[in-house]
């Protein structure tokens, strides 16, 4: 295995542990927003899509990349906005209470 791959594996494993630590003990009220927020973050695939569709010439991989850009952007924008919409409802009551 190349050194770059080993380094990437380290990053992956450490980030996974960070994820477990950060998310543990979230109250049930927030499970849905947490999931849709995390879902929006998984749209990070958009970055990969940008890299593969970056070439100037038209070819199959650019076209596939552009499709991926659109799909991932829907995931990101839709995910963050709908999460905000949900959390807004929770917020309103805090002011009231």
């Amino acid at each position: 295995m190349t050194e770059a791959l080993i380094a990437a594996l380290f990053v992956f494993v450490l980030a996974s542990f960070t994820g477990f630590e950060v998310i543990n003990k979230v109250p049930p009220t927030l499970h849905t927003p947490l999931m849709s927020g995390a879902n929006a973050i998984s749209g990070i695939a958009v970055i990969g899509a940008l890299v593969v569709s970056g070439e100037r010439d038209w070819n199959v991989s650019v076209i596939l990349g552009l499709i991926a850009v659109v799909l991932a952007t829907i995931n990101v924008v839709g995910g963050f906005l709908v999460t905000d919409r949900m959390l807004q409802m929770f917020k309103k009551k805090e002011v009231k209470a």
Partner: peptide, 30 residues
């Protein structure tokens, strides 16, 4: 999330690997 991480390994981009791993972990907890 894990798929995004895998895509990160494909284009060797730490951003994708980290974000994907975070989502993968949170999904597993739920």
């Amino acid at each position: 999330g894990i798929a995004a991480s895998a895509a990160g390994f494909v284009v060797m981009n730490n951003m994708l690997i980290i974000a994907g791993a975070l989502v993968g972990a949170s999904g597993l907890i739920l």
